[in-house]
Design a binder for these strands. Structure first.
Length: 162
DNA sequence: GCCAACGTTGGC
DNA sequence: GCCAACGTTGGC
């Protein structure tokens, strides 16, 4: 049977001072997890928001993820892939006391965007006005529709969108 | 550094 | 189970 699951698209935010796109690449190069030695490179831990966790539970291997720098940069800088589907977050110390355990996934860097796509440019694009990123600014893991994904890729191929 | 948005917590 | 208080995120 052809399990024809469509590839899904996501967007994940990180403060570059805490964990940047380059840090992700460095972890994969080192083959280890910088902050949690022995854990997987690219482990997306620490999410303690149910909406974000729900998205991570829905992620499948091979799904693609925009990597967004929050606080500083405010732009999508690269594309990562889901390398490992969700598992219990080893940094969730209260997991046992709670019914719902928080989870993490592993992501790996796939490629840089030729031109990072800024939040400003996204907000200025009417085609992207319904993006979860725009509608729900605080959500750290959000869903991206195929149409939004394609539009952002188009923007990333254009000369500097600033 | 401020403040709006919004998720979470805890008292009732 | 409601809702006010509180805490955190993240853009500006």
């Amino acid at each position: 049977m052809a399990q024809k699951t469509e590839k899904q698209y996501w967007l994940m935010k990180s403060e570059p001072d805490a964990y940047s796109w380059d840090d992700l690449a460095a972890e994969w190069q080192a083959g280890d997890n910088r902050d949690h030695p022995g854990q997987n490179p690219g482990m997306w831990d620490g999410v303690r928001n149910y909406a974000a966790a729900k998205h991570m539970r829905a992620m499948k291997t091979g799904d693609e993820v925009f990597f967004y720098h929050s606080q500083k940069g405010l732009e999508i800088v690269g594309i990562a892939g889901v390398a490992t589907e969700h598992y219990t977050d080893p940094t969730d110390s209260k997991a046992e006391e709670r019914k719902t355990k928080f989870v993490c996934v592993d992501i790996k860097p796939l490629r840089n965007l030729d031109n990072p796509v800024s939040l400003q440019a996204i907000k200025a694009n009417p085609k992207l006005s319904d993006m979860q990123l725009v509608r729900q600014g605080r959500l750290s893991v959000s869903a991206v529709t195929p149409e939004e994904w394609a539009e952002i890729l188009r923007m990333a191929s254009l000369p500097s969108s600033s």
